[in-house]
Design a binder for these strands. Structure first.
Length: 519
RNA sequence: GCCGCCAUCGUCUAACGGUUAGGACAAUGCUCUUUCAAGGCAUAAAUCGGAGUUCGACUCUCCGUGGCGGCACCA
């Protein structure tokens, strides 16, 4: 272990605890997804690891595409994950004056200029360059415009954008994850940095904000790597210090291309809705491109803060593997306390229409607090009232079978249904004949009827029924039909615990119903 | 097309230049068991190719190949 930290020490020399400031800067043009959530997480972990500040900045310069609902979704998602920011959210749309100031400065110094070329014109240019095997880039035509021409165009209200003059030089910088990286800016044309003084564009706004917000480490996706030289150039001409860069490997879909909507679900909210736990997502996302170097695989957010080392971040992209996510979620579900898990499952049972919440109010003398409202539940179909403990019993026997919270309804629906939809073939264990099945049901009814209500608990049921089941040799002959009669399902929890929860009356009723089908 | 980044089991990944290349998910088998899970045990499964440096290369260098990313008046 020691040698690794040795060799990586130099990468670390510019990390001064307490002086670290990172940021997560999403644009509210889409929902918070797996990829951006991981970027947020790594920025958070790095900042917290070194007692730094984690800033949230909303990059909403694109008026057309930015939507308030996306902004809400992003903020809600971060909160759900437990990723808390120390500053912000700053919104770029509220910082126009700051950008204008720097924009004017660049314009005045002749380092940026107005470009009046039309989009069509530029598109033709690009096509032409591509066809000649050249990198598409702006030819710098408007940079040659005289001051008078610019003034005239402007006063005529001719549409323009502000472009930044790219200096031809080699930009070399050190990426914390990738090491030395070199770009030749002579290969690129001047870039657009603002539509006008009021509306800056990404590359410019980022550079200004990262400087204004004193961001020390820029941690972002690898897809932004090619933007870095431009941003460095901007920093240099504006006289800003250069932050340290760390470009994260991409999260990939099964086809190994950048994870996107076409790979199916990427929105974090949808994972939440399906019943994935925030601790699952955190643990899972952290391991996409990072590992602690030990064989430990289970990490909470707090333990990640302790163990996270940015130098251990991978260079290669990581395929998003949903099977592993499911496994982890099952693991975290099994870790939950019965109470907590029940609370988490209730919304899903409600949503499926199996149960309904009810509120009971009780009057007390004012001295005792007046009215108290207690929450209870009832079975939607029968309107029978059930309490939290009843639901807890149900949830507990399915705890280790649950991979996603949403599965609870399908798994336990038979507890909430008046009549089950039996498939007759299902009653048969190992080719039992109808007669044999009927015999089993008769036997079951006889034995179960004899069990007293006050002895109605799974241990007792098990003792009594197992004794009878053993007589046949293969327990399945008695137990399989029982389980199917109680649940109507091919797979379920054990019949004794189910019978206990269902109660004697319903248990017997279901056995009779089932039997009536095989006569 | 141009520029850049990357490359260990199917997937996530471990391995100061010296290991029988390790772990996890998934798969398969066994076990437990009325079923399905969960658990336990076990099996199969990888260093992209070629040169070079070296006593020794997954690891360093070069060249290929492949994959991905970027090339907007999006971010």
């Amino acid at each position: 272990m020691e040698p690794i930290t040795q060799t990586l020490k130099e990468k670390f020399q510019f990390i001064k605890p307490g002086e670290v400031r990172t940021r997560f800067a999403p644009s509210p043009t889409g929902f918070l997804h797996i990829g951006s959530a991981r970027t947020a997480l790594f920025n958070y972990l790095f900042a917290k690891k070194y007692q730094g500040i984690f800033v949230l900045r909303i990059e909403d310069t694109d008026r057309e595409r930015s939507k308030p609902e996306f902004e809400e979704n992003i903020i809600e998602g971060l909160k759900w994950l437990g990723i808390e920011w120390d500053e912000g959210p700053y919104k770029q749309s509220e910082r126009k004056d700051i950008y204008a100031k720097y924009l004017e400065k660049l314009l005045k110094e002749g380092k940026a200029y107005h470009c009046f070329c039309s989009e069509e014109e530029l598109e033709v240019q690009r096509q032409e360059q591509m066809s000649r095997g050249l990198a598409p880039r702006y030819n710098g035509k408007c940079a040659k415009l005289s001051l008078e021409e610019v003034e005239r165009n402007l006063s005529e209200g001719k549409k323009s954008v502000i472009k930044f003059k790219i200096l031809a030089k080699k930009i070399v910088f050190k990426d914390i994850i990738r090491g030395r990286i070199e770009f030749d800016t002579s290969l690129m044309g001047d870039i657009s940095i603002a539509k006008d003084l009021e509306t800056p564009l990404y590359n410019f706004a980022v550079v200004v904000d990262d400087f204004e917000m004193k961001i020390s480490h820029v941690i972002r996706g690898e897809d932004l790597l090619p933007n870095t030289p431009v941003q460095i150039l901007l920093q240099e001409t504006l006289g800003f210090p250069q932050p340290h860069y760390a470009h994260l490997p991409l999260i990939l879909g099964p086809d190994k291309s950048k994870l996107s909507k076409r790979h199916g679900v990427v929105s974090l909210k949808e994972y939440k809705n399906k019943g994935y736990l925030p601790e699952t997502l955190i643990n899972f996302i952290a391991f996409l491109g990072w590992n602690p170097g030990t064989e430990r695989e289970i990490f909470s957010l707090a333990s990640l803060v302790k163990e996270f080392l940015i130098e251990r971040v991978q260079k290669g992209g990581a395929v998003f593997n949903i099977k592993r996510l499911d496994f982890l979620n099952g693991f975290y579900i099994r870790q939950k306390s019965p109470e907590k898990l029940t609370e988490l499952c209730i919304p899903y049972l409600t949503q499926e229409g199996l149960i309904e919440p009810i509120f009971k109010t009780e009057q007390y003398p004012p001295a005792y607090g007046g009215i108290s409202i207690t929450q209870s539940y009832r079975i939607a179909e029968t309107r029978e009232e059930i309490n939290f403990d009843y639901l807890k019993k149900i949830v507990v026997i399915y705890q280790e079978r649950l991979k996603k919270l949403s599965e609870i309804s399908e798994l336990t629906d038979f507890f909430f249904k008046k009549k089950l939809d039996y498939k007759k073939e299902l009653f048969s264990w190992k080719n039992m004949t109808e007669k044999e099945i009927n015999d089993s049901f008769n036997k079951l009814e006889k034995i179960i009827s004899k069990i007293k209500e006050n002895n109605w608990e799974k241990e007792n049921l098990e003792t009594v029924l197992l004794l009878e089941a053993e007589k046949v040799g293969d327990r399945g002959y008695l137990l399989w039909p029982l389980r199917v009669a109680l649940t109507g399902k091919e797979a379920s929890a054990g019949p004794f615990e189910i019978a206990e929860i269902l109660g004697k009356e319903i248990t017997l009723k279901r056995i009779k119903e089932a039997r009536s089908l095989v006569k």
